[in-house]
């Protein structure tokens, strides 16, 4: 059964091609496990916009859900 989980998302933030980038960690609570990875990023962005912060920019891959788990422009690593 899909549950709700609380996670931390450590995302690379870089303002522009020549800017220095850095990792920023965000708390994301109550994420539905049935959600796709991209939907999770959307939820994070909703939260950021609500806090008047800059949302995370990413390429919306076209609607091929099979590649959603390996979305263009991202590599995902897990750490606990």
């Amino acid at each position: 059964m899909d549950q709700y989980i609380d996670i931390k998302v450590r995302v690379w933030r870089q303002a522009g091609p020549k800017a220095q980038g850095h990792f920023e960690t965000y708390d994301l609570k109550h994420v539905f496990q049935g959600a796709s990875f991209l939907e999770m990023i959307d939820i994070l962005n909703e939260q950021l916009v609500a806090e008047h912060k800059d949302p995370v920019t990413y390429d919306h891959a076209p609607s091929r859900p099979a590649s959603c788990t390996c979305v263009s422009s991202k590599t995902v690593r897990r750490s606990l």
Binding site: F32, A35, L38, E39, D42, I43, S63, P65
Partner: peptide
């Protein structure tokens, strides 16, 4: 559909 947060549907 499986939730309110959903942003797109799959064909």
């Amino acid at each position: 559909k499986h939730g309110d947060f959903q942003s797109k549907l799959t064909l």
